[in-house]
Design a protein around this nucleic acid. Structure first.
Lengths: 145, 145
DNA sequence: GGGTAATAGTTGTTTTTGTAACCAACAATA
DNA sequence: TATTGTTGGTTACAAAAACAACTATTACCC
């Protein structure tokens, strides 16, 4: 298609990053959605608990930069499904400790395996060095550098 | 924080890409939102018309992979603001040609300039070679490779 | 030509998200 | 020990996205 203006939208980072993020999330999303009815924030919270064990909503927020209302709602959904338990902190009764139940652990382990395979497939398209550089650059762009 | 399980969430591409995409979109979003009250899909449609000139909703969809209902509503909003005009195709009366008005062009040029500056700032963090590689990899991941 | 399928785009309904206001528990200060 | 400010987390309401069903027009094909 003939161009009227030469701005390069396809190389504009916010656009390109979004397209890559969406496309690369799609197949994984299908799994956690169809298999467990989870939302994006749900699996993220689940993974945080699976990886780090018992933690509070606040700690999850600090680590992931997910907004606290989203976390609050994800925790509700996961608790309804009995994937996690909530226990008040006796020293500070405002916060509560979240922890996966055995059922939650099982879901985590299943999805974790799928995530690993999936990431390996994405990664296999590039060389080791390219992949390392990509991660560094993305972390920097994400403000996690 | 001590880990219970060693899955590397921060390097899981779908997660990392999303974080980078969100973070890198934020500052630009503030501009098109506060200055013109536009939504994400709105500026994308606007940019397509600014770059390629007159085109149909379908063509925009093919090029951007934005869903047709999102495009339909973005076009409505842009038309209400008199940023574009819609004219039926006489050969195929199902489709209509979209084209920016002078007002729409002005908004496009303003945002285009900001996008260029913004992208330049993001890009300045890396070397020329790193940037080239990043684009290639992202396009591949986005299925635009 | 008449019937069926395909296509461009729209609309309606339900989910999710964003934003701000809110509660309850704690901290700090006077 | 009142007072004021913070903090962890929730809720309410408005805005936006997802999904499916729909209209109108064109294409196919017997």
């Amino acid at each position: 298609m003939e161009k009227k203006d030469d701005f390069d939208l396809e190389n504009f980072l916010p656009f390109l990053l979004n397209q890559a993020a969406e496309e690369s999330s799609l197949a994984f999303q299908k799994v956690y959605k169809s298999r467990y009815g989870l939302l994006r924030t749900d699996w993220r919270v689940l993974f945080h608990l699976g990886i780090y064990g018992r933690m509070t909503a606040k700690e999850i927020g600090q680590r992931s930069k997910i907004h606290k209302t989203k976390i609050s709602r994800a925790v509700q959904r996961l608790a309804e499904r009995r994937y996690l338990t909530r226990t008040r902190d006796e020293n500070d009764r405002r916060s509560e400790h979240l922890e996966l139940t055995p059922a939650g652990e099982a879901v985590y382990r299943d999805l974790r395996g799928i995530a690993e395979d999936y990431d390996a497939r994405l990664t296999a398209q590039f060389t080791r060095g390219e992949n390392a550089l990509l991660r560094v650059m993305l972390r920097r762009l994400a403000g996690m550098g």
